[in-house]
């Protein structure tokens, strides 16, 4: 079934709910669905996390190999983020090479981590100009019920914070924890029925006019942004989205700290 085939009357119903400041699952506009984070469930990865945000279920695995640095950054580790939107996660994900959706997801999550300097890449150099640690952040969606960006972003930072550089396996020294000094959290704000919501479920995400992902660091500074959707956002809406994102990312950071 085409993702756009949400019955027209259902769109109407959601609008009516929104006008009464309600959502289909009884949440408030700023409320996240129940969140659970599992740390390092997969021994084959150097770090991993499985996040469930409502019914959205996503794994991030961290793998590291030794490789060449970029020529313009000879003493810096290399970071690559890839997303797999597997067809088993949703009837709306097709088989085949990554589509725009999965590429955007990977790049947005990557941007927040990279621009916040969350990983001390300069500590991942082995031999300057020759050998550095190459880090892969692999996002693997298992079940899709909206707001994959936020779920993947949370999983990524949880996996990174609990990852180990297995230097001993590669005979370049002792193992050490991956040096992570920031926790950028992407929070996507969705414009639905003219209102701004956090953590949209699948239906809300599908009917949303626009969305704005804001990745903030621990201080509340902005590290990455991405607007999606075809409708416009007023400057005032963007400012309000910032407030929502700040609150949201702090809440999530608190939850993660408690694990």
């Amino acid at each position: 079934m085409d993702r756009e085939l949400i019955p027209d009357i259902e769109r109407g119903y959601i609008s009516r709910l929104i006008r009464e400041r309600k959502r289909t699952d009884g949440r408030g506009f700023e409320e996240f669905r129940p969140l659970s984070v599992e740390i390092n469930p997969y021994g084959s990865a150097e770090g991993s996390a499985r996040v469930k945000l409502g019914n959205t279920d996503v794994i991030v695995g961290i793998k590291m190999i030794i490789g060449e640095p970029y020529s313009d950054r000879p003493a810096s580790g290399v970071l690559t983020t890839v997303a797999e939107l597997r067809p088993g996660a949703s009837e709306f994900f097709e088989q085949g090479p990554p589509k725009a959706e999965s590429i955007e997801l990977a790049r947005v999550v990557d941007r927040g981590i990279r621009e916040s300097g969350a990983i001390e890449l300069d500590k991942l150099c082995i031999v300057e100009g020759e050998k550095v640690w190459v880090l892969f952040i692999d996002i693997h969606a298992l079940d899709f019920d909206g707001n994959l960006i936020d779920a993947a972003g949370i999983a990524a930072i949880a996996a990174l914070k609990n990852a180990t550089v297995r230097a001993s396996d590669h005979e370049v020294g002792d193992d050490f924890p991956l040096p992570v000094v920031e926790s950028p959290i992407p929070v996507t704000v969705y414009k639905v029925g003219g209102e701004l919501l956090l953590d949209a479920n699948l239906v809300e995400e599908t009917v949303a006019e626009a969305r704005l992902t804001i990745t903030m660091d621990e201080k509340g500074d902005i590290r990455a942004m991405q607007k999606g959707g075809t409708a416009n956002l007023t400057v005032e809406e963007v400012q309000r989205a910032m407030d929502l994102a700040q609150k949201g990312s702090n809440n999530i950071r608190d939850l993660l700290a408690m694990d």
Partner: peptide
Amino acid sequence: AAFSVPDRKRP
């Protein structure tokens, strides 16, 4: 999955 094996598998 890419992270399912010790030597990362290309997706």
